Computed example of a mutant assay.
Amino acid sequence: MNRRQFVLTTLGALALGRPALAAPHRIEVFKSPTCGCCSAWIAHMEDAGFAVEARDVDQGRLNEVKASVGLTPELASCHTGLIEGYVIEGHVPAEDVQRLLAERPDALGLSVPGMPIGSPGMEMDGRSDAYATLLIRKDGSTEVWARHG
Rank of each mutant, 00 (worst) to 15 (best):
V7K: 08
P105W: 09
V57E: 05
G118P: 05
V57A: 12
N2L: 09
L8S: 14
C37E: 04
T142V: 10
G49E: 15
G17P: 03
T10Y: 13
C78M: 06
V69Y: 05
L21I: 08
G126L: 04
L16E: 15
N63I: 03
E143N: 08
H148K: 01
G36K: 12
L14V: 11
R61A: 13
G81M: 02
R137L: 00
S77D: 14
A54M: 10
P93M: 11
F30S: 12
F6C: 04
R4G: 07
L110H: 00
M1K: 07
A94V: 07
T34L: 12
R55D: 09
A13C: 10
M115P: 04
A94T: 06
S39T: 12
I83C: 08
S68F: 05
G149F: 08
Y131I: 10
G17F: 01
G114S: 01
G85W: 10
L101D: 12
L71D: 00
L62K: 03
S141H: 08
E84H: 06
A67W: 09
N2F: 06
D125V: 12
E46T: 15
E53Q: 12
E53C: 11
P19R: 14
V69C: 07
R99L: 07
L110C: 09
V7G: 04
I42A: 06
D125S: 14
L16Q: 13
A107N: 05
A51D: 13
R55K: 15
R55T: 11
G70S: 04
K66H: 04
R3E: 15
V7Y: 01
A40W: 04
R147K: 14
L100T: 03
A43Q: 14
R104F: 00
L75I: 05
L108C: 01
S119E: 07
P19N: 11
R137W: 02
S119G: 12
S141V: 03
A23S: 11
E46N: 10
A54F: 09
P105G: 07
I42T: 09
V65Y: 00
L101E: 14
T142N: 06
V87E: 07
G17W: 05
A146L: 05
H44Y: 09
